[in-house]
Design a protein around this nucleic acid. Structure first.
Lengths: 343, 343
DNA sequence: AGAAGTTTCCAAAGCGCTTTGGATGATTGG
DNA sequence: CCAATCATCCAAAGCGCTTTGGAAACTTCT
């Protein structure tokens, strides 16, 4: 059942049927509902291919799969991706994946995606401090939105959370509780988000005149393993340097840190305080830890959805200014933070 | 630069140019190379939308994102997905993702994907024992290929590895080494692959007249955590039931099991033997364990690529019989297996 | 040399939608 | 009552490719 057949059936022109279905104003409500009913009745689905050809829009968003980029963090990426796909589908868009791997440079992948012109816009995630992709896509004239920020000043659409503010707040909470030796278990500092978090952490320490000790800062993969190993190492430091509190960049890391702390015979919330950033991933709940975790929380899924919304809005309103959003991050205090133990 | 412009430039018809570029035989080699050169020169890229409309093929494969399905196993899924995308792209296809989540039943997602007709074929992964998706897609007339098998007899294309044979072999190796108490740390037995592996394990035990003890069989998520916890539990059993060997369904689980064994003060390859199934994921190498792991190995990435090849072949040759492949699995003996300790 | 193939190329008809530029009545204002 | 304005609707022209059904030129065969 195609448009022509449907319009013949209704004794209307294709124009009118098309407009009725697409919500144009120049068709009477009566006709519109008649058309809608018939379309439903006969299970009419407009051909995506035909529409694409006619409009020049592909109805597809592209996303480059960052396999080399943050391999083991990808539970978080997966959540982000899933929500992007979900939202895109709700708005009538498809999401296609591209892959950067091996011999192919990431740049080549982007170039190819653009040239084949099968996507209307692209979603970038996990930006590096000076991410080359954004100038690349700008020069290729491909609309895109970045999840995260970079140090690059050329204008581009972004959605990011206030990582710096979040870790500033979290660190300050620990300082207010009397902690003076605070460890940071971070993600790879090549990524902008990790860099921002470290800045927030340092900001807070600086206001108290406390030096940030390299031995208490770790930036690596966002895995439980890494959290556990680093925490164990730090807890083995001489007591003068040993941290009384940990700040983690992910719940996975916090799980590892929790184990290290417990194994050291210490009690979370009493001997050692712990705050983690919580991306709100379904099966990794900060509140269901044995000692519920104090967190800086921000749903990465919500960000995925919003990023798609913003990108589609950009595609539909190409002349508006490029949107930029920064979300504040909530600090949720639970049982894993307490006053610093007195010596 | 479109086909018409290019053909005018070459003083040829669109027909000829199109055929030259698409490798049809009814165009002379001389003309063909002239056309190719001009196309390259002017950076001509055929419009995907136009081609789709003209051919009725979308040039796109669909893959449903199994978020609820095997959440934490998804390092493996990610590898599979990545290789599918890579191969599809090499063959000129796109891969679009759909999502099943929350209110939407998985069935609704498949129905919608089919109705919107934006994909030529679909890739299914991680099948359950009696997976309803395959009869669904058959009834909807959507070509698809299944990575894995099911107990369902209706004909469909599949690529699977010989999970049963692999675990039969692995278990037999342990038996030959004198082990009599062998633990199985498996994936969720709702999945067919896990079920098959357990069958292989039981087959081997049965040939030696050994009963499979429920306490030594665990089926759950494919995480390091699960591996560690289960191994620790089993190692704490009274010595009459305590396993002298472990069989794991993934390298991640084996990492956890390794930790539990080491923590128990035991030495892998001497006190306890360990075999894991290795999906050959880049950053998770069985050979770089402290004690290199004996494995049943089969690259899941290679399977992803092959699945895409097979599906595309099916699309191009719709009348051929549905392909079914079962790959044998290699047993690679390394240092983690040794003779059972004498009491 | 004429008939019968072969090669090589082409004109034109779609594929199913969107969108431009009217046309047709119905309604309103002076 | 006629002109001007609206509200509806339509015919037809693309969008850029593939593919059908020939036509023309060139070989080969007898």
């Amino acid at each position: 059942m195609n448009l022509r057949e449907l319009s013949e059936l209704l004794q209307l022109s294709q124009t009118t049927v098309s407009r009725a279905l697409n919500g144009f104003p120049e068709v009477s409500e009566e006709t519109r509902s008649r058309v809608r009913a018939a379309a439903d009745m006969h299970g009419y689905r407009p051909s995506a291919a035909a529409r694409r050809l006619a409009t020049g829009q592909s109805g597809t968003l592209g996303l480059v799969f960052p396999r080399e980029r943050n391999m083991l963090g990808d539970l978080i990426f997966t959540e982000f991706l899933g929500c992007c796909v979900e939202q895109a589908s709700d708005l009538g868009y498809d999401v296609t994946l591209a892959m950067a791997r091996g011999a192919q440079t990431e740049e080549a992948v982007y170039r190819r995606a653009v040239r084949s012109a099968r996507v209307d816009g692209m979603i970038l995630s996990s930006p590096l401090l000076e991410d080359p992709r954004i100038d690349l896509l700008r020069s290729l004239n491909m609309p895109f939105i970045l999840h995260g920020r970079t140090r690059i000043s050329s204008p581009h659409a972004t959605l990011d959370i206030d990582n710096r503010g979040a870790f500033l707040q979290a660190t300050r909470l620990l300082l207010d509780l009397g902690h003076r030796s605070i460890a940071l278990i971070n993600g790879d500092p090549a990524f902008n988000y990790a860099h921002d978090r470290e800045l927030g952490y340092r900001d807070a320490l600086a206001t108290m005149g406390i030096a940030a000790l390299p031995a208490l800062i770790s930036g690596n993969m966002m895995t439980e393993r890494h959290g556990e190993d680093e925490a164990a190492r730090m807890l083995a430091l001489p007591s003068s340097e040993r941290p009384t509190a940990f700040l983690c960049s992910s719940i996975a890391q916090a799980m590892g840190v929790t184990r290290a702390i417990t194994r050291a015979g210490l009690v979370i919330g009493r001997d050692i305080s712990l705050i983690a950033h919580d991306d709100r991933i379904a099966d990794l709940r900060a509140e269901s830890f044995d000692t519920p975790l104090t967190t800086t929380q921000s749903s990465i899924g919500a960000a995925g959805k919003r990023v798609v919304e913003m990108l589609i809005h950009m595609l539909r309103h190409p002349n508006e200014a490029l949107p930029q959003e920064v979300w504040p991050v909530d600090l949720v205090v639970r049982a894993s933070t307490g006053p610093a133990p007195t010596v």
